[in-house]
Write a protein that binds this DNA or RNA. Structure first.
Lengths: 192, 192
DNA sequence: TCGCTATGAGACATAGTGTATCGGAGAGCA
DNA sequence: TGCTCTCCGATACACTATGTCTCATAGCGA
């Protein structure tokens, strides 16, 4: 018998779900959110159109699920001093949310964020998770002395994530570790 | 007779054009780019559907025109030293591209930027105009001594515009003059 | 093996899209 | 004022997309 209350999901369901979500990812990357429709997704996934409607009656939910599976994970590191941790945190963000093929997911989240409660909740959650992490590191750094104590944690978030986002999404140029280091040196590190 | 070669535009054309573009702006603000269709625009503008198709056979062109009329103007100031000018430039950007009711236009430009050559050209032009202005001010400031000479003009653009964009679009919080001042002090001003 | 559930295929009404046509109203000019 | 030309709105049309429903089939768990 399966563990009490925990029913094993039907492998057919998980199979179609992953096939569909993979198709959504692919469509989102190649053509943006406007290309993601029930029909196009069904065609791309090799799945019946009615099946897509069954699982995700609304497009928002479909987009939200696809975005979540892509941007959901975010492994923060907690070793060393706060500045070092902040550095690896920012690099993780660069290679995660702002990675070449993930940027569309993030901008979609931003622009479609207010469309539906589910989407809005996802937007808040994904953003807040990163914001909170940066914020607490800045606060810790003010104590252990590795980060400028006059830096307002609330603004620091924009100071640090903003330039990365701008360079990647507005300018469409790569964000190198050197960029992040210079950013930290100018903004966050304790002045000599 | 009208001036050689320059024919005065038909007032009917300019009238419908402005009515339609106003409707697009309104739809874009209230519901985002996905709400902007030939039908919805025609309905909102009180104009025949065929008329919209006549002027803008493609939606991209319609969006591009609406975005251009909104974000097209950008009055830069050139008095005082470079840092002062940079400050007023950033404040102009805050009250222009990133103003409450203009932010959608900018994000639309970002996400739909690659859709069509016209849209892409507009995106480049609008961004480059601001980028170029900031860049040249930073270069000037390195000479007149008001801006940190070790600041790479290329990166300065992201350092300055990024945080503003992040605070406004990602966090959805207001960008005050004080925010800009602190930003300039930390990033651009010559270290004491 | 057997019930149960998810799926694919298709039917269906409805709504939206893009194009073409046509009469009427307004602009420009003498 | 009267004339011509252009633009507009309305309508028709073929076509595609959307959302819902039904039903036979195949794979699942026991």
């Amino acid at each position: 018998m399966s563990p009490a209350g925990e029913t094993q999901p039907d492998p057919r369901v998980t199979a179609t779900r992953s096939r569909v979500l993979a198709a959504v990812s692919s469509l989102l990357e190649s053509g943006g959110p406007s290309e993601v429709t029930h029909s196009s997704v069904a065609r791309a996934a090799g799945v019946g159109r009615a099946t897509v409607y069954r699982h995700w009656p609304r497009i928002d939910a479909l987009l939200a699920d696809a975005i979540e599976t892509r941007l959901g994970v975010n492994p923060p590191a907690t070793t060393g001093d706060a500045l070092t941790d902040l550095r690896s945190m920012l690099l993780a963000i660069v290679n995660g949310v702002f990675a070449d093929d993930s940027a569309v997911f993030f901008t979609t989240l931003l622009i479609r964020g207010g469309d539906t409660p589910q989407m809005d909740a996802l937007r808040r959650e994904i953003i807040e998770r990163r914001i909170g992490a940066i914020r607490s590191l800045v606060e810790r750094g003010a104590v252990d002395g590795s980060i400028d104590p006059t830096l307002d944690p609330d603004r620091a978030v924009s100071y640090l994530a903003g330039p990365i986002m701008h360079r990647r999404i507005v300018l469409g140029r790569p964000v190198t570790p050197d960029f992040v280091d210079d950013l930290l040196l100018r903004f966050a590190a304790t002045p000599a």
